[in-house]
Design a protein around this nucleic acid. Sequence first.
DNA 1: GCAAAAGTGTTTCCGGTACACCCATGG
DNA 2: CCATGGGTGTACCGGAAACACTTTTGC
Lengths: 214, 214
Amino acid sequence: MKLKSKSNIVFAVVAADAVCFRIINEKLHVLLEKAPKYSPFPGEWALVGGMLHPRETAEEAVNRLLEERAGIKSIYKEQVYTFSKIDRDPRGRVVSIAYLVVASSNPQELKKADLETEWMTVKSIPKLAYDHNEILKNVLEKLKFNIFNTNIAKYLMRKEFTLSELQNVYETVLGKNIDKRNFRKKILSQDILKDLHKVRKEGVMRPAKIYIFK
Amino acid sequence: MKLKSKSNIVFAVVAADAVCFRIINEKLHVLLEKAPKYSPFPGEWALVGGMLHPRETAEEAVNRLLEERAGIKSIYKEQVYTFSKIDRDPRGRVVSIAYLVVASSNPQELKKADLETEWMTVKSIPKLAYDHNEILKNVLEKLKFNIFNTNIAKYLMRKEFTLSELQNVYETVLGKNIDKRNFRKKILSQDILKDLHKVRKEGVMRPAKIYIFK
DNA sequence: GCAAAAGTGTTTCCGGTACACCCATGG
DNA sequence: CCATGGGTGTACCGGAAACACTTTTGC
């Protein structure tokens, strides 16, 4: 590699961190892992992240890391921001590209992995290693923006869902309640859903219509 | 530095590239430099960019590079996107953080530098070295978004300006014409300008009122 | 009086928001 | 008949866009 400078300086190196979301019980969860013993923050919770391999892009690194650490396949991925503060990693100069990721909500696609990983609700995130709380905050803002400005909701939902379930997901992402009539009017007017003309009966209430994303 | 892997692999390193804008004659210009002889693209036009020093953030690197190469002080700076394709630099694995920068429009603050640099209108950008055309495209999109959604126009204008001049800047940034009445209504309703109650006489037409940003 | 840019209002449409009641079902 | 969530409509407001003529000046 010809990038070493003459003055013996080593350049900053590149990592990727994944803020990986998933809806569990209609609540927004984030994937965290316990930082290993030999790391600067042994035992503390951290986002899933690591160095880019020499022959992979940042996106590929995110895919690999999630697969390695928690057996997760991402179904949506989007670069959010790159963090380059000098001392963000005590071991050396590491610049980190942060990604917003949505994991499949299909339970079969989640296997138990070697490392300790856990899905935590966004309301209960502890203090994280490195600058990961700041990264999480940035990515969460992006998710809130995206939920009403892109089709990301498609990746947070199961294939078939009711409008109430969809609204619950919006509410857990935004962290606030939405008026039911306005929500339905807005979603339906966007012409992104398909009415399957099926209903889901659940307990003692009126059955709900089933939709899918187009 | 403890970041070298055991398997003798060298990690990707970090550069920053600046897409530096300036209004000249009410047209949007971008700062380019000729890539040096010893580079992979000798003599080709490129964005101003370079490796991060070990003790500087990406923003600081952008400041330094613009100062070194063209004597430019940036008055607005914003990270846009990080490019990590594997072969984007033929010399090795370089990941580049792209910045949207606005240079001072004050002519005195621009000195002639060693390297060949040139301000080119966005309409006349040639084929650039590396993936810099792609970077420019991304950053330009961001600028178009920002012009109506942030106060970036403040940094593109001289201190004192007329509404017609402001509108011209919006038009050169967006690459399209804007209705004069709608433009004035919108800008004035935002309460971001201050009427200096002065006029600028210029040639044979009605004098225009002078504004500044609040 | 004319050329050249400055300045000015009204109407229409659309998306966002506030707000309250009836419907279908199982027990 | 009742408890539970499913489902519906209207009115108001503010921002965006379309659109044409009068004003001020120097010559």
